[in-house]
Amino acid sequence: MLSKERCAGGGGGGERGDEEEEEMVEEWMKNARAWCVGWIVKTNAGFRFSLKTAYVAVTYLDRFLARRCVDRDKEWALQLLSVACLSLAAKVEERRPPRLPEFKLDMYDCASLMRMELLVLTTLKWQMITETPFSYLNCFTAKFRHDERKAIVLRAIE
Protein backbone atom coordinates (compact mmCIF):
# COMPACT_ATOMS: atom_id res chain seq x y z
CA MET A 1 0.00 0.00 0.00
CA LEU A 2 2.23 2.80 1.18
CA SER A 3 5.17 0.93 -0.05
CA LYS A 4 6.54 3.14 -2.74
CA GLU A 5 9.25 5.39 -1.56
CA ARG A 6 8.96 8.32 -3.88
CA CYS A 7 11.81 7.95 -6.29
CA ALA A 8 13.70 10.78 -4.67
CA GLY A 9 15.53 12.92 -7.15
CA GLY A 10 14.56 10.57 -9.93
CA GLY A 11 17.62 11.66 -11.88
CA GLY A 12 17.32 11.21 -15.58
CA GLY A 13 14.20 9.08 -15.35
CA GLY A 14 10.72 10.04 -16.49
CA GLU A 15 11.18 9.45 -20.19
CA ARG A 16 7.87 7.63 -20.17
CA GLY A 17 5.02 9.47 -21.68
CA ASP A 18 2.24 8.70 -19.23
CA GLU A 19 1.92 12.26 -18.09
CA GLU A 20 -1.79 11.87 -17.98
CA GLU A 21 -1.50 9.09 -15.47
CA GLU A 22 0.86 11.23 -13.43
CA GLU A 23 -1.59 14.09 -13.44
CA MET A 24 -4.34 11.85 -12.21
CA VAL A 25 -2.18 10.60 -9.36
CA GLU A 26 -1.33 14.14 -8.44
CA GLU A 27 -4.98 15.11 -8.48
CA TRP A 28 -5.81 12.13 -6.33
CA MET A 29 -3.07 13.01 -3.85
CA LYS A 30 -4.36 16.56 -3.63
CA ASN A 31 -7.82 15.37 -2.77
CA ALA A 32 -6.45 12.79 -0.38
CA ARG A 33 -4.46 15.41 1.48
CA ALA A 34 -7.43 17.74 1.63
CA TRP A 35 -9.54 14.96 3.06
CA CYS A 36 -6.89 14.15 5.71
CA VAL A 37 -6.47 17.79 6.70
CA GLY A 38 -10.23 18.15 6.98
CA TRP A 39 -10.47 15.11 9.23
CA ILE A 40 -7.57 16.27 11.41
CA VAL A 41 -8.97 19.77 11.90
CA LYS A 42 -12.45 18.47 12.64
CA THR A 43 -11.27 15.83 15.09
CA ASN A 44 -8.80 18.23 16.69
CA ALA A 45 -11.68 20.58 17.45
CA GLY A 46 -13.73 17.68 18.81
CA PHE A 47 -11.04 16.91 21.34
CA ARG A 48 -10.64 20.63 22.13
CA PHE A 49 -6.93 20.48 21.43
CA SER A 50 -5.01 23.64 20.77
CA LEU A 51 -4.78 24.82 17.18
CA LYS A 52 -1.08 24.15 17.26
CA THR A 53 -1.72 20.44 17.69
CA ALA A 54 -3.68 20.33 14.44
CA TYR A 55 -0.97 22.34 12.75
CA VAL A 56 1.73 19.95 13.92
CA ALA A 57 -0.36 16.96 12.82
CA VAL A 58 -0.70 18.44 9.35
CA THR A 59 3.03 19.04 9.10
CA TYR A 60 3.57 15.37 9.96
CA LEU A 61 1.05 14.45 7.29
CA ASP A 62 2.74 16.62 4.68
CA ARG A 63 6.18 15.39 5.53
CA PHE A 64 4.91 11.83 5.29
CA LEU A 65 3.26 12.41 1.93
CA ALA A 66 6.41 14.06 0.62
CA ARG A 67 8.22 10.76 1.13
CA ARG A 68 5.54 8.25 0.41
CA CYS A 69 2.38 8.10 -1.53
CA VAL A 70 -0.79 6.24 -0.92
CA ASP A 71 -2.08 4.09 -3.75
CA ARG A 72 -5.29 5.24 -5.27
CA ASP A 73 -7.37 2.28 -4.26
CA LYS A 74 -6.26 2.43 -0.64
CA GLU A 75 -8.55 5.14 0.69
CA TRP A 76 -8.76 3.36 4.02
CA ALA A 77 -5.08 4.05 4.59
CA LEU A 78 -5.80 7.77 4.60
CA GLN A 79 -8.02 7.42 7.62
CA LEU A 80 -5.36 5.46 9.43
CA LEU A 81 -2.71 7.98 8.44
CA SER A 82 -4.76 10.92 9.68
CA VAL A 83 -5.34 9.28 13.06
CA ALA A 84 -1.66 8.44 13.44
CA CYS A 85 -0.58 12.00 12.66
CA LEU A 86 -3.07 13.54 15.06
CA SER A 87 -2.37 10.99 17.77
CA LEU A 88 1.38 11.62 17.57
CA ALA A 89 0.93 15.39 17.53
CA ALA A 90 -1.34 15.15 20.59
CA LYS A 91 1.24 13.06 22.44
CA VAL A 92 3.90 15.64 21.81
CA GLU A 93 1.75 18.72 22.35
CA GLU A 94 -1.17 17.99 24.62
CA ARG A 95 -1.13 17.45 28.34
CA ARG A 96 -3.70 14.69 28.12
CA PRO A 97 -3.44 12.93 24.78
CA PRO A 98 -6.32 10.58 24.00
CA ARG A 99 -5.89 6.85 24.13
CA LEU A 100 -6.29 5.19 20.77
CA PRO A 101 -9.85 3.86 21.32
CA GLU A 102 -11.00 7.43 21.98
CA PHE A 103 -10.64 8.09 18.28
CA LYS A 104 -13.61 5.75 17.89
CA LEU A 105 -12.60 4.01 14.73
CA ASP A 106 -14.34 0.68 14.86
CA MET A 107 -12.68 -0.51 11.69
CA TYR A 108 -9.20 -0.53 13.13
CA ASP A 109 -7.73 -2.12 16.19
CA CYS A 110 -5.11 -0.45 18.37
CA ALA A 111 -2.35 -2.63 16.98
CA SER A 112 -2.94 -1.37 13.45
CA LEU A 113 -3.06 2.21 14.64
CA MET A 114 0.21 1.79 16.44
CA ARG A 115 1.77 0.22 13.36
CA MET A 116 0.75 3.28 11.44
CA GLU A 117 2.20 5.54 14.12
CA LEU A 118 5.46 3.64 13.75
CA LEU A 119 5.38 3.91 10.01
CA VAL A 120 4.89 7.66 10.28
CA LEU A 121 7.67 7.96 12.86
CA THR A 122 10.16 6.02 10.79
CA THR A 123 9.20 7.85 7.62
CA LEU A 124 9.77 11.16 9.41
CA LYS A 125 13.10 9.74 10.56
CA TRP A 126 11.93 10.29 14.15
CA GLN A 127 12.20 14.05 13.76
CA MET A 128 9.25 15.22 15.78
CA ILE A 129 9.85 18.87 15.11
CA THR A 130 7.02 20.93 16.43
CA GLU A 131 8.33 24.36 15.66
CA THR A 132 5.64 26.15 13.74
CA PRO A 133 5.25 29.72 12.61
CA PHE A 134 3.24 30.18 15.82
CA SER A 135 6.44 29.96 17.84
CA TYR A 136 7.63 33.17 16.24
CA LEU A 137 4.36 34.99 16.47
CA ASN A 138 5.01 36.32 19.96
CA CYS A 139 8.45 37.66 19.09
CA PHE A 140 7.01 39.26 16.03
CA THR A 141 4.02 40.89 17.66
CA ALA A 142 6.16 42.18 20.50
CA LYS A 143 7.52 44.66 18.00
CA PHE A 144 4.11 46.23 17.56
CA ARG A 145 2.06 48.55 19.68
CA HIS A 146 0.35 46.86 22.56
CA ASP A 147 -3.18 47.51 21.33
CA GLU A 148 -2.41 46.14 17.88
CA ARG A 149 -0.97 42.84 19.01
CA LYS A 150 -4.17 40.96 19.49
CA ALA A 151 -5.49 41.85 16.05
CA ILE A 152 -2.26 40.69 14.46
CA VAL A 153 -2.36 37.36 16.24
CA LEU A 154 -5.97 36.82 15.30
CA ARG A 155 -5.30 37.57 11.68
CA ALA A 156 -2.22 35.38 11.62
CA ILE A 157 -3.97 32.28 12.91
CA GLU A 158 -6.99 32.60 10.65
Binding site: M1, S3, R67, L80, M107, Y108, D109, M116, L119
Partner: peptide, 19 residues
Protein backbone atom coordinates in the same frame (compact mmCIF):
# COMPACT_ATOMS: atom_id res chain seq x y z
CA UNK B 1 6.18 -4.62 -5.07
CA UNK B 2 3.87 -5.15 -2.11
CA UNK B 3 3.72 -8.87 -2.23
CA UNK B 4 0.43 -9.94 -0.77
CA UNK B 5 -2.16 -7.30 -0.12
CA UNK B 6 -2.95 -6.39 3.41
CA UNK B 7 -6.66 -6.36 4.16
CA UNK B 8 -8.10 -3.11 5.45
CA UNK B 9 -7.40 -2.69 9.13
CA UNK B 10 -4.25 -4.73 9.18
CA UNK B 11 -1.23 -2.97 7.91
CA UNK B 12 1.16 -4.71 5.72
CA UNK B 13 3.92 -5.83 8.06
CA UNK B 14 6.44 -5.80 5.29
CA UNK B 15 6.18 -2.05 5.54
CA UNK B 16 7.17 -1.99 9.17
CA UNK B 17 10.51 -0.40 8.44
CA UNK B 18 10.75 1.86 5.44
CA UNK B 19 13.11 0.73 2.74
Amino acid sequence: MDGEEAPPGALNLADYAPA
